[in-house]
Computed example of a mutant assay.
Amino acid sequence: MRVSISHETIRKGFIFKKTYREVHLMVAFTHEEKQIIKQRGLLETKLLDRRPADAKNDARDEKFELRVEHLMDGQIDRFLCATPSKSKIYEENLLAVMQQMKAWLDDNAETGTRIVVEI
């Protein structure tokens, strides 16, 4: 699994332009990892709860969740942050989640074997 994270500065708004920091996430899964995700039915798995800087107050939180399916097939996930500091904190959270996901995929690669423990 190869993870690529980049930061971009963008301006949004028609009359009152506001500057945001957009964090781009792209994950390149190996063929084996893609097979594990599909065979184990892990596409719907939520990786991260998040809320972008331009979200409306009454918007549902489920709309902004980061799921495994959003990262498949080299798709780029874009997320808006209000400040450079928040974008760096978001990047740290992404890296932690991606490391956890790699361990999780490795665990799902094979079923457990029989062990005997004497206590």
Rank of each mutant, 00 (worst) to 15 (best):
M1N: 10
M1S: 10
R2V: 06
V3R: 08
I5V: 15
I5F: 12
S6D: 12
S6N: 12
H7K: 11
H7G: 07
H7N: 09
E8W: 08
T9G: 05
I10V: 07
I10Q: 05
I10C: 01
K12S: 10
G13C: 11
G13Q: 10
G13K: 11
K17C: 00
T19S: 10
T19E: 15
Y20P: 09
R21V: 15
R21M: 12
E22H: 02
V23G: 13
L25V: 07
V27R: 07
T30D: 06
H31N: 06
H31I: 03
E32I: 01
E33Y: 02
K34D: 07
K38E: 04
K38N: 01
K38I: 00
K38M: 06
R40Q: 04
R40A: 05
R40M: 04
G41K: 00
G41Q: 01
L42I: 03
L43Y: 06
E44S: 10
T45P: 01
T45D: 07
K46P: 07
K46T: 15
L47S: 05
L47H: 04
D49V: 04
P52L: 04
D54H: 02
D54F: 06
A55T: 05
N57Y: 05
A59V: 08
A59H: 06
A59K: 03
D61H: 11
F64C: 05
E65M: 13
E65C: 01
L66D: 03
R67V: 11
V68P: 04
V68E: 03
H70V: 13
H70W: 14
G74E: 13
Q75W: 07
I76N: 07
I76Q: 04
I76F: 01
R78Y: 13
R78K: 15
R78P: 00
R78F: 13
F79W: 13
F79R: 06
T83S: 12
T83V: 02
T83I: 08
K88W: 06
Y90M: 08
Y90E: 07
E91P: 02
E92K: 04
N93L: 05
N93H: 04
L95N: 00
A96K: 00
V97T: 03
M101C: 11
K102Q: 14
A103L: 14
L105R: 12
D106N: 14
D106L: 15
D107L: 05
D107V: 00
N108E: 11
N108H: 14
N108I: 09
A109Q: 08
E110Q: 13
E110F: 14
G112M: 01
G112I: 02
V116Q: 10
V116H: 14
E118H: 15
